[in-house]
Structure formats: structure tokens, C-alpha cells
Amino acid sequence: MSRVVTLKINGQDVSGREDESILDVARENGIEIPTLCQLDGLSNVGACRLCLVEIVGVSRLLPACVTRVAEGMEVNTESERLLRYRRMIVEMLFSEGNHVCPVCISNGHCELQDTAIALQINHIGMPYRFPVRQVDASHARYGLDPNRCILCTRCVRVCDEIEGAHTWDIMGRGIASQLVTDLATPWGESETCTSCGKCVQICPTGALFIKGKSVGEMTKRPDFLPYLAMMRNRKNGS
């Protein structure tokens, strides 16, 4: 059994189990920290950097999703500087791809859009990069529009960790990174894809979608995930 510790988040006294992350404890106490790569039920990669928080006595900013709580910790999730960085991160994501909200199936149900709204972003301060990216519509039921992909790797993880297929992965590096199925073969020709659709449901944007939906029609349902993960852990006896 892990011990219970007490700490302060934004000046508020809270308690949590030693094996919980700052994000877990913050959420339990109704303190909002924006996230994109994190999803309950998947492993955490600490990649989007939206959840960075300040911890008294630690010079670096640390991602709340992977940082464990500790006794006496003092966490700040809301400084001027953190807000500025979070806005820049979201602006970076918009500048990196081709996000055309009005014609997106996820318009109005998009975590990227929601995060932008929550951070009061009304324009993108850095130059758009307008990359050239090819849509993959080869799968019978689903599609991938990489123009809307933010490389959060949730699909990669759900496919690997929950479905066990590991159809998705990232190819290339840096700004040239891209999502691929199998060895960069068309999705429809994938020999590993089970067509379970989990990736589509947990994609935060409209990058992965069910064919036949029109603008704004695609609502995602990632809520099955914690349940599946819990059942799996139970089966593995942990």
C-alpha cells in the first residue's frame, strides 16, 4: 500500500496517495490543468508539455501528468508564465498542421479547439507552416487526415497497450514526424489493424475519423478506456 501524503496545490491543502501524479490529485480536487497527450488508461509520455507546473524548490517546470506527489510539495499550476507557455504550445500546434475548424468533422468536439478556447487564444501569433500532408482514406470504415494530427501518440499507445496490435507508430523525426500504420503502408492494407476503432475514439482532434460523418458530426468517446485498462490490470493481477 502506498502512503498518503499532503501537499499544497495553488495554496490549497490537498492529500493524495504517493503513487498518484500531481495531475490525478489536482483533478480529484477540481483543479484544472490542461492536457492533450495524457489520457486515463494509457501510459503517460509527458510529451505535449501543456500540464507543466511550478514546484517550489524545483528550478525546472515539471509535467503534472508524470510527476508524483510528495509530502510537503508546493505546486503552482496557474502562474502568468505557465499560461504564456501553454498558449504558445497550443499556438505551435495550430501553426504546425492545417487546422481548418469550420470544415472539420470534429468542429465543436475537439480537444485542441477546446484547449485554445480555455486559454483564450483568438489568433495564432507565430507563422503558419502550411505543411503538405496526404489524407489516408484507404481503410473501409475510418480515415486519417494528418493535417489535423497533433502527434499526441494516444492512438499509438491505445493500439499498442490496449488493443495489442501496434498498428500505429511515428515515422521520421522532428518537424517531419508523421503518424504511420505498419511500415508506412496505407491503413486499408494494414495486416495488423483489427479495425477496432479505439484509435478513432481517443483521437483528440478530427485527425482520425469515422467515414461518412459530416462537419461537426464526429463526437469521440474515449470513456471506455479507463474501464478497459482497469479490467486488464485486474486480469494481470495488479
Partner: peptide, 18 residues
């Protein structure tokens, strides 16, 4: 005033940028 998404983020017209 940038009025609307096309002025604000180039929006649909920018889809020709490729």
C-alpha cells in the same frame, strides 16, 4: 479588426497553399 476565420487564420482559402 480581423473579422472571421479567413482573416484570423487564413482558414479554407489557405487550403490551396499546398
Amino acid at each position: 479588426v480581423s473579422m472571421g476565420d479567413c482573416a484570423v487564420n487564413a482558414n479554407v482559402p489557405a487550403m490551396r497553399n499546398r
